[in-house]
C-alpha cells in the first residue's frame, strides 16, 4: 500500500513537473499593415463597378461619382512563429512604373520602399501569397529573393488553357494594339510570368491546390473564378483585438462592393456568383464585411473604410495603414 502510494505520488509529481516544464502555450499573433504601391487615376466608376455607373445629374450617391482613384494595395503580415521571424506579403504589387506609364498611375512607391517605412527590408520577407497572377499583383516577386511564392495551381492552369486555346481570338494575349478585350490571358505579360517561373526554378514556390494552412493562423482559401481562374483568399487570425482579417486581392477589388453586395472589377475569367460566394466567405470567417481587405478599394486609407483609417502618407504620396499590432510591436505610423 505504501509502495503504491509512493508510486502514485511520484507519478503526480512527474506530471506536475512536465506541465511546468512545458512551454506556455501562447496564442499566435500578427501585426498587419496595408501599403499603397501606386494609384490608378481617374477610373470611370461604372467601368470598375457597373452598379456605380455615373449618371449625369443624378443626386444618388450610388451614381453621382464620375471617376475614382484606385490604390494598388499590398498587405504586410508580420509575426514570430516557432521562434522564427516571418514577414508575409498579401500580393506583391508591381515595379514597372518606368515603362507602364499608360496605366495612368500616380503615387508610385515600390513595395520595397514602402516596407522600409515599416522597418522591414526586402530580404526579411519570407512568403508572398498572391491573390492571383496579374501584373499589378505579382509584378515585383524578384525584389524579394528570400520569399517563397504561394500561387494556386488553378491560376497557372487557367493561363495555360487560354494560351493554348485553338482559336486565336481566345488564345491572344492581346487582340489589338492598346487593348486585350478581356481575353483570359490578358493581364499576364511575359515579364510577370517570367518572375513567377523564376521563383519556381529557384525552388521558392508552392503551387497550392485548394485550401492550405500556411502557418498557424494563416490560411489560404481558393476563390477560383471569382476574379481569375485560380484566385485565392488569405485568412489571417491576427490574435489581436481586430480578430480575423481576409485579404481578397481583386476578388475583393471593392470593399464597398462587399458591403453593398455589388460586383466589382469584372473579368472574362470570373463568374459573378463565385465573386459573391467569396464575399460570403469573408462574412463567414470574420463575422461581417469590416475585416475584408480589398485590393483596390477607392476609400482605402480613409475613415470611410474603417479598418484602414489609421493611415499616413509615405513617399510620393503613397499611403500606409496600420491595421493591428501584435504584442511587443511598436507603431510605425509617422
Amino acid at each position: 500500500m505504501k509502495s503504491s502510494m509512493k508510486k502514485a505520488l511520484v507519478a503526480v509529481g512527474l506530471a506536475a513537473a512536465a506541465t511546468l516544464a512545458a512551454p506556455v502555450a501562447q496564442a499566435q499573433s500578427y501585426s498587419v499593415w496595408l501599403v499603397e504601391n501606386s494609384r490608378f487615376m481617374n477610373v470611370p466608376y461604372g467601368a470598375f463597378m457597373p452598379d456605380r455607373v455615373f449618371v449625369p445629374g443624378s443626386t444618388s450617391k450610388m451614381n453621382n461619382i464620375n471617376t475614382v482613384d484606385l490604390p494598388v494595395n499590398v498587405g504586410v503580415i508580420k509575426g514570430t512563429v516557432n521562434g522564427k521571424a516571418e514577414v508575409i506579403l498579401a500580393d506583391a504589387g508591381w515595379k514597372q512604373q518606368d515603362y507602364l506609364k499608360m496605366t495612368g498611375s500616380d503615387h508610385y512607391s515600390a513595395v520595397v520602399d514602402q516596407l522600409k517605412l515599416l522597418g522591414i527590408s526586402a530580404g526579411q520577407v519570407t512568403k508572398i501569397i498572391v491573390g492571383h497572377g496579374h501584373w499589378d499583383h505579382a509584378g515585383s516577386l524578384s525584389d524579394f529573393p528570400n520569399a517563397v511564392l504561394y500561387i494556386q495551381k488553378k491560376e497557372l492552369e487557367g493561363i495555360e488553357w487560354a494560351i493554348n486555346y485553338p482559336h486565336p481570338r481566345i488564345s491572344a494575349t492581346n487582340v489589338s494594339p492598346g487593348g486585350c478585350a478581356r481575353t483570359p490571358a490578358c493581364g499576364y505579360p511575359p515579364k510577370t510570368l517570367d518572375e513567377i517561373y523564376g521563383k519556381v526554378l529557384a525552388g521558392k514556390a508552392v503551387i497550392v491546390d485548394g485550401e492550405m494552412e500556411v502557418m498557424p493562423g494563416i490560411n489560404i482559401h481558393p476563390a477560383h473564378h471569382a476574379h481569375t481562374a485560380g484566385s485565392q483568399l488569405i485568412e489571417v487570425k491576427t490574435g489581436t483585438s481586430v480578430g480575423t482579417l481576409v485579404f481578397g486581392s481583386d476578388v475583393y477589388s471593392s470593399w464597398q462592393g462587399i458591403r453593398d453586395w455589388m460586383m466589382a472589377n469584372p473579368q472574362s475569367s470570373a463568374d459573378t456568383a463565385q465573386q459573391f460566394l467569396a464575399y460570403e466567405k469573408c462574412y463567414k470567417l470574420t463575422g461581417g464585411y469590416n475585416n475584408c481587405i480589398s485590393g483596390h478599394e477607392p476609400t482605402s486609407y480613409t475613415a470611410e473604410y474603417p479598418i484602414t483609417k489609421n493611415s499616413w502618407v509615405g513617399a510620393n504620396g503613397a499611403r500606409l495603414a496600420e491595421i493591428t499590432l501584435a504584442p511587443g510591436e511598436s507603431s510605425k505610423k509617422k
Binding site: F40, V43, L70, V72, Q96, D98, Y99, L100, K101, M102, T103, G104, S105, H134, W135, D136, N174, P177, G178, G179, C180, C186, G187, P189, P190, K191, L193, D194, E195, Y197, G198, L201, D250, N265, Q267
Partner: peptide
C-alpha cells in the same frame, strides 16, 4: 532552364518597355 529563364526575362523586360512607346495601353490595370 535557369539560364534560359534569365534570357527570357531580359527579353520580356525589353519588349515591355518598347510596348509602352509603340502600343500605349497594351496593358491595363486589372
Amino acid at each position: 532552364l535557369i539560364l534560359a529563364q534569365q534570357r527570357s526575362e531580359q527579353a520580356s523586360l525589353a519588349i515591355l518597355k518598347l510596348s509602352d512607346v509603340l502600343w500605349p495601353g497594351e496593358y491595363k490595370p486589372n
